[in-house]
């Protein structure tokens, strides 16, 4: 039974007709062609699909599209400002916080939620926060470094 869902995605109002069982990540990737949000597993473990729903990080594979009805959704595509990277994105670039890039959107979105809650996290707090985000390439070392640098930049540090 198709249903209509409407939401704000990256500041743009969207209305889509979807099957009730449609996941938020499917709506983003298939209907809206926002393919920066990735699917790396089917058990809610890997975190490649993390987006923000009303400012909080959410695994988009674990939420029905209808549950985001009326919400403000931000995906990785919504961070850069006219091609200028967000400080967190820039920190990942400068600190080689990504290799194959597949987990990266989830890492960045997850990191931003951490910094929103804890603007000056320690390395240990970053590692704990990333409990729900898997990366096979980087060994996390440079991801942690990137997030600390990104948090610092967002606080107005150098």
């Amino acid at each position: 039974m198709p249903v209509n869902v409407s939401m704000n995605v990256n500041g743009r109002a969207v209305v889509e007709e979807v099957e009730e069982r449609t996941l938020l990540v499917e709506l983003l990737r298939e209907n809206l062609r926002l393919t920066g949000t990735h699917v790396g597993c089917d058990t809610s473990q890997c975190g490649a699909c993390v987006v923000h729903v009303d400012g909080r990080s959410v695994k988009a594979c674990t939420m029905l599209a209808t549950q985001a009805h009326g919400a403000d959704v931000t995906t990785i595509e919504g961070l850069a400002d006219n091609g200028k990277l967000h400080p967190m994105q820039e920190a990942f670039r400068e600190n080689h916080g990504l290799q194959c890039g597949f987990c990266t959107p989830g890492m960045v979105m997850s990191a931003l939620d951490l910094v929103a809650r804890n603007p000056d996290p320690t390395g240990g707090e970053v590692r704990e926060w990333l409990e729900g985000n898997l990366c096979r390439c980087t060994g996390y070392h440079n991801i942690v470094k990137s997030i600390l640098a990104g948090a610092s930049a967002m606080r107005g540090g150098s």
Binding site: L34, T35, G36, T37, T75, I76, E77, L79, A80, L85, Q89, F92, R93, L98, G101, F102, T104, P105, V108
Partner: peptide, 10 residues
């Protein structure tokens, strides 16, 4: 390559 990966446009 990071520009595209970081902006979700890979």
């Amino acid at each position: 390559e990071d520009q595209r990966f970081l902006t979700g446009t890979g």
